[in-house]
Structures are given as structure tokens and as C-alpha cells.
């Protein structure tokens, strides 16, 4: 019984939040890894692309809410999501046309693209703040919980409750669908294969008649989709704030690099590794320990390895350890 309580407490405070956060990071990291594979640079504007997509989704959500349209127990934002994706697609394609394409024609070096993406990052960041302001926005509506802690306790008779928020459930389901679709696209469709071919060997792709501009266009469309979905899921789960999204860049880069830049599976694995280590190391284990350990050994302190403010430090420490031992990341990406 005690063990069961410990397990439930662990699942409630570590397992569920980490799975949700890990899925969000994974979808974000997939976008970064795709740009890295096909366009061959790390996109510093990715966090702000996520912010932009989320912002559009929020605006449409407000519009729907104003018009009395709702999605029953699910958040209205899910209805608004396709609009957010479409507008973000438009923005990234516009950016590619007006900004990045020139450098492709010049055969610019990847690091030049990185600097260009810094400029795009500034502009998108400013644009989002300009439109929606720098403040915190909550836009989740509908049912808050799939199971609340109280219901769980009543159902099971345990002392510990297990709460699963709707946003967490949606995150996991969406992540599974998105990842399955993406892998199907990359591995089974002609266009997806041509993207992989272009990433593997650009010259040979050209000699096979693959049109680089089309490959790049599809990549941006997918990246816009992934970024918007990741951003909206994160926003539903926590809240939306432009600066927070900009800062998500670090754990997202860390996920992509830990997993192996350029490897989609790696991006997913990396997302969960980073999320689980962040949550476990900054979790106060007192509760779980009290259940598991005999009474005489019950801890006085919180048994927290590091304060929550150090979550960046954790993702980063994991990253350094992985890079020291496996410079190409866990799933052997293309770096190094």
C-alpha cells in the first residue's frame, strides 16, 4: 500500500508532468532538427516561431470564444490551431522568400544562415510582443482535468491522488499523432524521401532531379506546423509568454543535440531525456521518500536535489555529459 502510494505520488508529480513536457520539447526539437538537416543550420528563431504560431492561435481562440464557439470539454484552442498553423506557414514561407532564399542562391555558409536567423529571431520576437504584448496569457478553457486528484483517491481508496490535466492528455495524444504522421511522411512518401535524400547528399539529390526549392518549402511548412503545435501545447499546459517561449530555445536545442542533431528519433528521445531529468532533479522527493523509507529514516528536508530555478542547469549538464561521451548525440546525428 505504501509502495503504491509512493508510486502514485511519483507518477503524479514527476511522471505525468515530465511526459507532457517531454512531448512538447520533442515536437519543438523535431522542428529544429529538420531545419538543421535540410537547411543545414540551427534556427535561433524557432522559439519565436513557436511564440508566433501560439499567438495567432490565441487570437483566433479569443475570436471563437467571443462568438460563443466552443469545443465542449476540450479547449477551444484546438479548433483555432489549424488557423494558427496556416498563418505561421504563411509567415515562414514569406521569411524564406524574402530572407533565406537569397543566401541559398549565394551558397552562403551555414554560419551565415545562423546569423540571419538571429535577425529573424529579433523581428519575430518584436512582432509578437508588438501584437499581443509581453505579458502572460492564459487561454485554456473546457474541462481542466481528465482525472482530478480527489476523484482518483475516491476511486482507488489510496491516500495519494493522481491528477491528469486535460492539457497533458491532449499533449500526449497530439504528440503521438504528430510523430506518427511525420515519420510516415518522411519514410513513406516520395516528397518525404526526397527531403531525406537532399539532407543526405545535396549534389546527388540535384543529379536525381530533386528540386531543392520544393524540398525547402516542404520543410518550412512542416516546421511551421510542428512549431505551432509545440507552442500551443506548451501554452495550454502552462501559459503563453513571449519571453518564456524565446527561452525554450535552450531546452529544445539541448533535446535536439542530446538525441543527435539531424535525427528525428533522437529529437524525440532527447526531449524526454531532458524533460525527465529536469523534473526529477528539481522535484522534492520528501513525499515519495516518506512512503518508501521506514519511519525512523523519514527525511526532514525536502529532499530536493536542486532548486527548480536550476532546471536549465540540468538540461545543460545532461547535454555536456552526453557530448563528452558521445559527440554525435545518442542517435548519431550529423554533428561532428
Amino acid at each position: 500500500m505504501e509502495l503504491l502510494n509512493a508510486l502514485v505520488a511519483f507518477t503524479n508529480f514527476v511522471g505525468v508532468p515530465a511526459i507532457a513536457y517531454g512531448s512538447q520539447l520533442a515536437i519543438g526539437a523535431l522542428g529544429v532538427t529538420l531545419v538543421y538537416s535540410v537547411l543545414r543550420f540551427s534556427n535561433f528563431a524557432h522559439g519565436d516561431t513557436m511564440a508566433f504560431g501560439t499567438m495567432v492561435t490565441i487570437l483566433v481562440t479569443w475570436l471563437f470564444q467571443g462568438a460563443g464557439i466552443s469545443f465542449g470539454p476540450l479547449p477551444t484552442a484546438l479548433l483555432a490551431l489549424p488557423f494558427g498553423i496556416a498563418v505561421t506557414m504563411g509567415l515562414v514561407l514569406f521569411t524564406d522568400r524574402t530572407v533565406y532564399r537569397f543566401y541559398r542562391e549565394q551558397k552562403a555558409k551555414p554560419v551565415v544562415f545562423v546569423m540571419v536567423s538571429l535577425g529573424v529571431m529579433f523581428m519575430m520576437n518584436g512582432l509578437v510582443r508588438f501584437i499581443i504584448g509581453p505579458g502572460d496569457q492564459r487561454f485554456a478553457d473546457g474541462e481542466r482535468f481528465i482525472i482530478s486528484a480527489r476523484d482518483f483517491k475516491k476511486m482507488t481508496g489510496l491516500d495519494e491522488g493522481l491528477a491528469i490535466k486535460t492539457s497533458q492528455g491532449i499533449t500526449v495524444v497530439t504528440a503521438i499523432i504528430v510523430v506518427a504522421l511525420l515519420f510516415w511522411f518522411l519514410n513513406k512518401t516520395r516528397t518525404g524521401k526526397s527531403m531525406r535524400a537532399y539532407s543526405d547528399n545535396e549534389d546527388l539529390a540535384l543529379l536525381s532531379g530533386i528540386n531543392p526549392e520544393r524540398v525547402v518549402m516542404y520543410t518550412w511548412l512542416i516546421v511551421a506546423t510542428l512549431a505551432t503545435i509545440a507552442g500551443v501545447l506548451y501554452g495550454l499546459d502552462k501559459s503563453f509568454k513571449p519571453f518564456t517561449y524565446f527561452q525554450l530555445l535552450l531546452p529544445i536545442f539541448a533535446s535536439a543535440i542530446v538525441g543527435g542533431l539531424g535525427s528525428p528519433i533522437g529529437a524525440i528521445a532527447g526531449g524526454f531525456i531532458i524533460a525527465f531529468s529536469e523534473v526529477t532533479i528539481t522535484y522534492a522527493w520528501k513525499k515519495v521518500a516518506t512512503y518508501v523509507l521506514p519511519e525512523t529514516m523519514a527525511p526532514d528536508g525536502l529532499v530536493q536535489l536542486l532548486s527548480t530555478d536550476y532546471k536549465f542547469a540540468v538540461s545543460f549538464a545532461i547535454l555536456i555529459i552526453v557530448l563528452l561521451f558521445k559527440p554525435t548525440g545518442i542517435f548519431k546525428g550529423k554533428s561532428v
Binding site: 540571419v116 529573424v120 518584436g126 508588438f130 504584448g133
Partner: peptide
Amino acid sequence: NASHMRLLTMGLILLLVLR
């Protein structure tokens, strides 16, 4: 929101110079 023009402008300057 005019104050947020700052970031937008910095990005624009950077892009113009790079180009």
C-alpha cells in the same frame, strides 16, 4: 506597444546589413 518596435528594428537592421 510602440516600445516593442525596438526588437523589430534591431532585427531589421541586422538583416539589412547582412544582406
